[in-house]
Design a protein around this nucleic acid. Structure first.
Length: 596
DNA sequence: TTAGGGTTAG
């Protein structure tokens, strides 16, 4: 039989015993040992000692070697749980796989007839649980109680409220809390910036940073990472370069987080050379570092280099994840590397034990489809575990447009209709295929389908950064303050491109209102957002300056041809990031080799 | 005794 714990043997009188047990608990690092201590606590009659029971509960609820169900057992044995006991159990569950239980305990605490009232810690823990379970109304209710309890000025509780609201999709409520704070520290500023960035409000994130600069709170790696992510999404290279300079000056470039965010920013802003310089200088690299390079080369259509980095990653002993393969397959697809792409798709599960997800199947369909192997693409969808996903059929329909394949295009459309997922973009894609083969009946059917369903399209927009400002242009929209100047400049540019042979392509097709949405491009494209952004860029930058444009949709055929001519006529390098990939236009040709 | 912040795909 095992001998008892030496320290437990010396337990004598109650106060001395309590002190010893508390000391033992301090150094306790396993659940097994804790069970022994608990058994001894019971035999010595100390199970109701407040400090001991709190300590035991805290250990079980919080410690990595603890156990939440055991913590629950201990909690329910407490006759009068103190606030700190409630906090332990709420905190334990808020970090656990079942955060909803944290809310149950919070509810029980609030409704219990005891003196143990919620404090700032309780609110911090329960708000975290609200964020994790997406309990929007509970978050609002807790906020109300925070105010009634007089904690509305607590900087940590307010920061938790910001995160909880934003995590529940209530970004404007988060902002109201932020605006109402009398005192803000670096963490609260960073939280507001990261909440905006994660919710896709990138301009707002940058505006908060501008406000922050006037407050003398400084910045740190957290600030930079969120801001760089927003710059990456916006394609705001100039602002990103300023962030890089600050990171160097303040000594944050050594951080893996900052390095990764810099690589991603440069890659998404179209400057892979700068991304590579950051990568080469990094002392420490993790899976995100490699992924950022692989995805970066992938979306630029440079599959060979994506494969090179993947091999280097494996040689460096870094385990790839599902995102690695998205970058790799994307690169293979855009470069037409079918065999390599197929090999990596199968290696994912066989060599790396990563189950392909819907996105990977989408990449495989795209890989075959772009290469004209439409039957193979169809087979992939039919044999995939996710064949009922409209994304795959839509990808196939896009490939049918490239290769003017009516038969498979109609199969894809039929499946989209059966799934109840067909949208205006799909109708436009199929109509474009019909146009390509002079099928007037098909075109008429698509036009009827669009009209009868009244399906809405996504308006196309483009961003262009000039100086440290990002300007947005929307198709057929005249809201930009310099719209007259832009349209005047555009006419001049079209003239210049026409002299070199550009002919504006105008579809004979559609007069359905609201269908000049860019992608699919049925109608005149002269007001497409991309052309407006190019005109603005040429008007506002010095000769020879590279233009960088970010679009929310795919580049249409006419705009692609237009941009090629403009790059030659005006000697400008124009880098366009569309919804799927990058296009580098230079001296009249595009890096995609018209294969997109 | 205890609390709040970061990057890649989509």
């Amino acid at each position: 039989m095992q001998s008892p714990e030496p320290l437990l043997c010396i337990v004598g009188q109650t106060s001395a015993a309590a002190k010893v047990i508390l000391r033992i608990l301090q150094g306790c690092n396993s659940l097994q040992r804790l069970h022994k201590i608990h058994a001894h606590v019971i035999t010595t009659g100390l199970q109701h000692h407040p400090a001991i029971s709190s300590k035991l509960l805290h250990f079980c609820a919080i410690s990595v070697s603890g156990c939440l169900s055991y913590a629950q057992l201990l909690f329910h044995r407490l006759q009068n749980p103190l606030t700190q006991d409630w906090n332990s159990i709420i905190r334990g569950f808020s970090d656990s796989p079942s955060p909803l239980s944290a809310i149950f305990y919070y509810n029980a605490m609030v409704s219990a007839a005891s003196d143990s009232r919620p404090d700032t810690f309780t609110f911090s823990f329960v708000l975290k649980a609200c964020e994790r379970v997406k309990a929007q109304s509970k978050c609002k209710e807790v906020h109300g109680f925070v105010i009634r309890c007089g904690y509305k000025r607590d900087v940590v509780v307010c920061t938790n409220l910001i995160r909880s609201y934003a995590g529940n999709g209530l970004i404007w409520d988060a902002r109201k809390v932020f605006d109402g704070m009398l005192e803000r520290d670096l963490v609260s500023w960073n939280s507001m910036i990261s909440c905006y960035s994660q919710a896709g409000f990138h301009h707002e994130a940058l505006k908060i940073y501008n406000m922050m600069k006037n407050e003398n709170v400084g910045l740190d790696g957290f600030t930079l990472v969120s801001l760089l992510s927003s710059c990456a999404h916006l394609g705001a290279l100039n602002i990103g370069v300023q962030m890089h300079k600050i990171a160097r000056e303040k000594g944050f470039v050594e951080s893996v987080f900052v390095g990764n965010a810099l690589i991603d920013m440069y890659a998404k802003c179209g400057n892979l050379d700068a991304a590579l310089i950051v990568f080469d200088r990094m002392q420490k690299r993790d899976v995100l570092t490699w992924n950022s390079m692989i995805v970066g080369y992938g979306v630029h259509g440079r599959g060979d280099e994506a494969i090179y980095f993947f091999r280097q990653m494996i040689n460096a002993g870094v385990q790839p994840n599902s995102i690695t393969f998205i970058g790799l397959l994307c690169g293979c697809s855009h470069q037409g590397l079918v065999e390599e792409g197929v090999k990596y798709f199968y290696n994912m599960s066989s060599k790396f034990n990563i189950k392909p997800g819907i996105k990977h199947y989408g990449c495989l369909v795209d890989l075959f489809g772009r290469a004209g192997k439409l039957e193979n693409a169809l087979e992939v969808i039919r044999t995939s575990p996710t064949h009922e996903d409209p994304v795959l059929w839509r990808t196939l329909l896009g490939s049918c447009k490239i290769h003017k394949n009516v038969h498979i295009g109609e199969i894809a459309m039929r499946n989209l209709v059966q799934l109840g997922a067909s949208n205006a973009g799909d109708c436009i894609l199929l109509a474009t295929i019909y146009i390509g083969v002079n099928n007037a009946d098909g075109v008429a059917r698509m036009r009827k389908m669009i009209k009868s369903r009244g399906i809405k399209t996504t308006p196309g927009w483009s961003w262009i950064e000039v100086g440290d400002q990002v300007h947005k242009f929307v198709v057929n929209d005249k809201s930009h303050p310099d719209t007259d100047e832009v349209h005047h400049k555009l006419r001049e540019i079209i003239h210049g491109a026409t002299l070199l042979g550009y002919v504006e392509e105008e579809s004979p097709l559609i007069t359905v209102p609201g269908f000049n949405n860019e992608e699919g491009c049925l109608g005149t494209s002269s007001c497409h957002s991309e052309k407006l952004a190019i005109a603005f860029g040429i008007a506002r930058t010095t000769e020879g300056t590279c233009l960088r444009i970010v679009k929310n949709l795919r580049v249409c055929r006419d705009c692609h041809s237009f941009t090629k001519f403009v790059s030659k006529a005006f000697s400008r390098e124009i880098i366009v990031r569309d919804r799927v990939r990058f296009h580098h236009f230079k001296e009249g040709s595009c890096s995609c080799k018209d294969y997109w």
